[in-house]
Design a protein around this nucleic acid. Structure first.
Lengths: 146, 146
DNA sequence: CACCAACGTTGGGAAGGCCAACGTTGGCGA
DNA sequence: TCGCCAACGTTGGCCTTCCCAACGTTGGTG
């Protein structure tokens, strides 16, 4: 493998985006084994933790565009992992509900994702993992609040 | 902004990929101001640091697929930032050369990228920035060597 | 009642990353 | 020397994530 230009190798944004490629592949390989992708996990996880919700709310929780939520819910509903019904209290909304099959799928995805984390952080000791997670969380929090 | 599911918020792969979105936007906004995108920077930087090279070599240095290098070189050549000539020593290859205009463009992109780094790391002190960069570099090195 | 905001939906596009196929050219072992 | 395989550039395509604009419907508010 030829050497990477120093200009790149030193930039946090380069390290971050390149490493994100690996992280994303590890995660989505795992998801692929159960026929799912990232957006599905974000939705199922939100439903499991906060209960039935509108598509808009799911989008805000998982940082997804409304239009992408539509497509993901279509896929999840087609396989019986969620149910989409009109919200009787607000006819603009759909109420999305997690089914038992969806909860099982979520558990499968959880396991796949846990394995991905291990593979991702493999070279780091527990303390370094903690440090990294903390720093990333601080930065992400800052950028999410504008 | 609604709360993110704890399952997600705690996962390094989530922090990483989400933060990478911000990093990517900061960088590509800066690049956009000079009418460029990420692939262009990788190529110009490699040419500047290592001199004229074949497209395949540029791809390996910047972690790009051969086919994507073709497109990027087309765009760069069209604007006079690089020159593409057949390599007399190996007629399978093209020799890609940085022009003076290309070097100037690279400098512009460097400045834009530096500003992006500052914005990205804004909430961190120098020491934390160093720590983060080191940890990311260790992980990336590990995953690039298989 | 008028107006604006939120919602779901459709359609689209950009960027990065990847793969398969093809013809050309180099290098190497038989 | 010949035959084969590897590397190269190119074309064309696909997927994912992310994002935007527009539309009609519905809720809330002044």
């Amino acid at each position: 493998m030829e050497e990477t230009p120093a200009r790149l190798a030193a930039k946090p944004s380069w390290l971050l985006t390149q490493l994100a490629v690996h992280a994303h592949r590890l995660a989505s390989d795992g998801f692929g084994e159960v026929g799912a992708r990232g957006y599905h996990y974000r939705i199922l996880a939100a439903l499991d933790e906060f209960g039935a919700a509108s598509q808009a709310e799911l989008g805000r929780r998982g940082n997804m565009d409304r239009s992408d939520v539509v497509a993901a819910i279509n896929e999840l509903a087609e396989r019986g992992f969620v149910e989409r019904t009109p919200d009787p209290d607000d006819r603009r909304r759909n109420l999305v509900t997690l089914t038992a099959a969806g909860a099982r799928q979520l558990r499968r995805m959880d396991h796949a994702l846990d394995r991905a984390q291990d593979a991702l952080l493999e070279p780091l000791q527990a303390e370094d993992r903690q440090t990294l997670t903390l720093l990333l969380a601080r930065l992400l929090a800052h950028h999410r609040r504008e």
